[in-house]
Design a protein around this nucleic acid. Sequence first.
DNA 1: AAGCATTCCAACCGCCCCCTC
DNA 2: GGAGGGGGCGGTTGGAATGCT
Length: 305
Amino acid sequence: MRKPEDKGNYKKRGKVRKGLWSPEEDEKLKNYMLRNGQGCWSDIARNAGLQRCGKSCRLRWINYLRPDLKRSAISPQEEELILHLHSILGNRWSQIAARLPGRTDNEIKNFWNSSIKKRLKNNNITSTTTTSSPNKCKTVSIRDTVTGGMILPMHDYSYDVVNTCMDSSSSNSHFNPFPPVLDNSFDTNGSLNFPKYVTQVGSSTGNRGELGDYGVMCVPGSEGFGVDNMNNNGVMSSDYVFDQKNVIYHNNNNNNLNNTESMKLEDMVGFGNHWQGENFKFGELDWEGLLDNVPSLPYLDFQVQ
DNA sequence: AAGCATTCCAACCGCCCCCTC
DNA sequence: GGAGGGGGCGGTTGGAATGCT
């Protein structure tokens, strides 16, 4: 913890106080907030008689003093929900917290960085992270139809990585997530050590559509792009492919794309106007809408106590 | 019991976005 | 249009608590 600064000093110097909050400060802020409600945080800090900056007051209220906060440990159901939401939203802690009543983004972030990350590491499970950076190739990972038929935006990767991974021997332009080093990608247990740009989705039984299914989609320039899935045995199949018009094809028949069901990518995931070819940015996605349009999420059905 | 290592988590930092002027 | 300020967010820090030897 951070040391509370010496009260006498900060008053003499007229500086804002930092560090741990004293019970007196908590009391002042809590009383003020309950009486007056939320407003301009710098005004709140001043009017409540606190030698704190507005940001510090906001953080203390949101993460600790709010009356609707839960003080209990994260339940297994909540943990499941956090895992699932993180697979969709990545490190968007505030959005995850918004779906867990009584929990704060800070709490979930800390929980993730301690227990879940450790557990995932121990279980040899990598989770997905959602980041968006300009001038990068866009990738999307697929949750197989077996577990709900979702398609989810996940990663960006550099053009360099993408170009390295393009299957030049193939006449189509499907993205090949296997780099040349793949031969060395199996550990002694036969488990795959996935290259960092392969996104894992799914749960843990090792069946197709669950742990072991890896979907990667890439948009390298104006070429078409594809999605490959891989099961636990390292068997590849192209379950989803996209053409240059952003039409997604679901391959139902062992790579026979003549017998596919097809639909617009934006129809599947509600990209709507966000999908504009090279101008597409994950950061502009309607994540709320995306989640709302996922009726098959089993974890969202329970009530958090 | 003591010392060291690890984990937990409150709080800060810096960046970004939005709003106002 | 752009400068400035406030708020929100994710990443990081560092000290307390806990575990281990």
